[in-house]
Design a binder for these strands. Sequence first.
DNA 1: TTTTGAGTTGTTCGA
DNA 2: GTCGAACAACTCAAA
Length: 446
Amino acid sequence: MNFVQPFLTLPAHQKCNIFWFRRDLRLEDNHGLWECLRAGLPVLPLFIFDTEILGKLENPKDRRVQFIHQEILRLKTELRAAGSDLLVLHGNPHEIWPTLLASCQANAIYTNRDYEPAAIQRDDTTAKTAAGLGVAFHSFKDQVIFETHEVVKDDGTPYTVYTPYSKKWKSVLQESQLEPYNSAGLKAEFITGVQFPVPTLEEMGFQATAFVYPQARLDKNTLAHYASDRDYPWKPGTTRVSLALRFGTLSVRELYRIGFQNSEKWVNELIWREFYMQILFHFPYVVGSCFRPEYNRIVWRNNEAEFEAWCNGNTGYPIVDAGMRELKQTGYMHNRVRMITASFLTKHLLIDWRWGEAWFAQHLLDFELSSNNGGWQWAAGCGVDAAPYFRIFNPYLQTLKFDPNLTYIRRWVAEFDSLKYSKPLVDHDFARKRCLQVYQAALQKP
DNA sequence: TTTTGAGTTGTTCGA
DNA sequence: GTCGAACAACTCAAA
């Protein structure tokens, strides 16, 4: 068992509390960690490379694993500077926890809540395991401002339309909820006198690549122009915080504070994130099926050759191809282009939105189940607050509006100006009419 | 309970 | 070239 050995260095007789990092990879303004430090006992910080999650990744060069690994090393460095260290394990948490709790004098496990179905299950099981060994399990709100039950309609049921949700969200917000959890001055400290090894990427079955991750742009200038520039994929108009938000290297409270000072429009995007998180929580069946069940009747064409052409950016529609190539090369795609490519796959090619959702899930560095699922269902017209099905993006018009000088297209489609560039996979007008027919047939009242 | 107004991100067609 | 209507009604949220 590859996770037993590091325990040998644990101070076995010292009482401690364990803080379990997951998607909150930072020491500052971390709610659960703050509570753990406040509780009084020395804190043993822990991260688990979860084989249940890593096992589902197909690409050994998955850049998200490399990102987490890099951030783990940074955390270790910071903790070592404080005379402590981060315990990093690799395995199935359900096997790790009983062994770990038997190897140290843990009083309680502290962690920040995660709202995805699989994570909820993992934490329930962990809490039960811990309880069986007389160890408490405490979880805290950290990755959102409002959790799934905190912004609901007056009758207590969840919102399914964004605008009233966002109004309620803003009306219940109090400034105190944005205050940072500043751990300076707390009594307890991290456990000292320990030194733990870290598994390498290779030991976990992954490979390192030379890749530079995007830096968040949170300067006043970017935010001041966000509302006007965010829709143009050729401009550096977005803040690129999605990766930091995904893994919690930046605090969501700090991001909201910055947003409220600089850009209302940008704050709305953060609220969209919480909107889709609560949708996934309250309607978990959206993983795998349409929010609106009547859309499950759509007869998708699901042509595999066309799907492959879409994946690789060879549809002959420049704006679609540019986006798909940006995604494959960088693990990122501009939001406007995410909508265009998703609309094209579902409506022009009539390929099941779940296929596109899975491709994005595999390739997006910032992949988040709730937002990805919500976005795809929106594009396909089958989700909450979705686009009406007859609203079919015209890739040429979208290009004219959002990339008029073809700057973005030429950046990603090198052969665009040559004769080698592919012919369109399907005629726009034909595809549009075909889509309307197929959707109409599916939605017709019996 | 009933009513009323509104709903992220569009496109096409014809006057 | 510009503008408004049609696209399809439907469901949601709140008064």
